[in-house]
């Protein structure tokens, strides 16, 4: 949250609505600004619109109305190649993981770096580091369909973090984890935050934001209703 008031914001959402057919209002006229290097928790009940908001931010869907700017670029105006390159700058930990079930843990994580044509040695080093941080070193050559949901969730998060992206969007990153694994995940996310990564974490799990200094935004019925806690570092 450092320098959020000085540097241009990384994400600027202006009066955005998202309506699914026939007439389901998932997001209703929301506005939100997230600064570079900020860590924001997005809370709210199931179906409140958290996942929809994340989908809009990683270009899986487009708003029905309103403007979304990322890195000062209107995402609706991005060309196909710009969109592809922009996606490489965002790490997404999906709620449904979106892992390749027949591929190994290593292959799944490496894929995020491979699409950027990273050096194989660098890929190997980074994947090992992430697996070590998340306690999955012994699962490296196991197909992801052989893992528990908690392990799959950590693999998904590792893939999101692999490129040290500018922005990480995490949808319920601790939803299936025990306390020990939750700690490991949060340690990794905090480490990334300290290195300057912007994080938007959608969660039900109050234990991960209970004592936080970061912004917590609540979403209810498609509206950003209240900011529970704001602590600015000047």
């Amino acid at each position: 949250m450092n320098n959020t008031h000085l540097a241009p914001p990384l994400i600027d959402i202006v009066k955005v609505s998202k309506v699914y057919p026939p007439n389901i209002m998932a997001l209703n006229d929301i506005s939100l600004t997230i600064g570079r290097g900020e860590m924001v928790f997005l809370t709210g009940a199931s179906g409140a619109g958290k996942t929809t908001l994340l989908k809009l931010l990683c270009f899986l869907e487009y708003p029905t109305k309103g403007l979304i700017e990322q890195d000062q670029k209107d995402i609706s105006q991005l060309s196909s190649i710009d969109l592809q390159l922009m996606r490489q700058q965002i790490g997404v930990a999906y709620q449904d993981f979106k892992l390749l079930s027949k591929h190994t843990v290593y292959q799944n994580i490496a894929l995020a770096m491979e699409v950027r044509y990273e050096n194989p040695t660098k890929i190997k080093k980074r994947v090992m580091e992430l697996l070590n941080d998340l306690g999955l070193s012994d699962k490296i050559h196991i197909a992801t369909n052989k893992l528990s949901r908690g392990e799959q969730q950590r693999v998904c998060l590792a893939r999101a973090c692999a490129n040290r992206p500018a922005l990480i969007l995490a949808d319920e990153p601790t939803g299936n984890l025990d306390t020990e694994s939750t700690d490991k995940v949060m340690t990794l996310l905090n480490k990334l935050h300290k290195s300057g990564t912007t994080l938007l974490i959608a969660t039900h799990d109050s234990t991960i934001y209970r004592d936080t200094d970061h912004r917590i935004i609540n979403i209810e019925n498609g509206k950003l209703q209240e900011i529970l806690k704001v602590k600015l570092d000047f």
Partner: peptide, 12 residues
């Protein structure tokens, strides 16, 4: 689909 989500280019 996953490759697309990860930002894979057309040439990739």
């Amino acid at each position: 689909e996953i490759l697309r989500f990860l930002g894979a280019t057309d040439s990739y």
